[in-house]
Design a binder for these strands. Structure first.
Lengths: 120, 120
DNA sequence: GACATGTATCGACGGCTGTCAATATTGGAA
DNA sequence: TTCCAATATTGACAGCCGTCGATACATGTC
């Protein structure tokens, strides 16, 4: 798996600039809006949203790709594509063990999104 | 303003089906995933994300469209288009007073998104 | 009524995106 | 090494989306 594609480009929260990262606090600046919108765009597909939910709710906190492929009526390359989008958004992470790849969510990213919607 | 376009199609939380609406609880079913993904798709554009943030963080809780248009380097029809997308997603609501239209966020929708990212 | 202003809609265009079939890559087994 | 299974990548295509100019609608003013 290419490390170039798996990385998280920037920290999501940007805690240096503001003490209340909620949407209702200070208006998000264009730079951070771009970064956040990329994460929401990743969640803006029903298949990817279900993928994140399947991974997040799985006992043990990680899921094998083969299991994810089986949960949808889509081809394996399509699921692989969606997983890459989620990886690039920093929502999930993966680890290869032997032939299999296991995906888990990135808690920091999920938590950062949660604080976004807290009351201002 | 057409009421057909301003409405919220379905409740976001669907509390009847599940007691823990977080992503990490029960995996979201395809029907709800479609509805949630539509909301995230609405947030998946930097301009719309900034619009929501501008509205949510504005003192008084509402903003005139003319002020929103002035905050971007985009044409008025484009801002109007983005506001409609946010309206259709149930993220914002609007009220006309005289010549002006005032937008505010929909607290229930914002709160529902917040609970989505709470620990499972 | 006529006019001006704020807002929404329409139609078009370029770019992005979800999906697939085909193929490449990786890692274990024989 | 050779083969196979699991996963990732590539290339292509249709459909969606953000943006604009032009225009329509709504409301207040004269």
């Amino acid at each position: 798996m290419s490390t170039k594609l798996a990385g998280q480009p920037l920290p999501l929260l940007d805690t240096a600039s503001c003490c209340r990262p909620s949407l209702a606090g200070t208006p998000v600046d264009p730079r951070r809006a771009e970064r956040l919108a990329a994460v929401f765009r990743a969640l803006g597909d029903p298949v990817r949203l279900r993928l994140v939910s399947l991974i997040a709710s799985h006992p043990g906190g990680e899921v094998c790709v083969c299991e994810l492929v089986g949960a949808f009526d889509l081809t394996q390359p399509t699921i692989s594509h969606h997983l890459r989008v989620l990886r690039q958004a920093g929502l999930v992470d993966c680890e290869r063990r032997g032939t299999w790849a296991y995906y888990r969510t990135v808690p920091d990213t999920i938590a950062a999104l949660g604080t976004l919607f807290e009351a201002g």
